[in-house]
């Protein structure tokens, strides 16, 4: 059996989660808008995590035939 990987999909998943976390930190006053680097670091970090999850994450179980029926 071979593992089909989705690094691009994981990248966008990480970007979405990173943007959400950055916005939450901003509106809860834990991060300011004086510099964009913290937000970029958060988004970039989650994007890298998404790529790694898409490449080396645990294998997602394929749906069995009996479950389809």
């Amino acid at each position: 059996m071979k593992r089909k990987r989705h690094p691009i999909r994981g990248f966008f998943a990480g970007v979405f989660v990173g943007l959400g976390v950055a916005i939450l930190l901003l509106i809860y006053g834990k991060m300011t808008t004086s510099s964009g680097w913290p937000a970029l670091a958060i988004v970039g970090g989650f994007a890298v995590l998404g790529v790694l999850a898409g490449l080396f994450g645990p294998t997602r179980s394929r749906r069995s035939a009996s479950a389809v029926r």
Partner: peptide, 28 residues
């Protein structure tokens, strides 16, 4: 607030997309 709703929505979509991006087993 609108930013809070957008942030939560982004996180939910991102987590779902992250699960869909996990490797899947396929026959060689």
């Amino acid at each position: 607030t609108i930013p809070w709703i957008v942030a939560v929505g982004l996180i939910v979509v991102g987590v779902a997309l992250g699960y869909a991006s996990l490797p899947r087993a396929k026959p060689t």
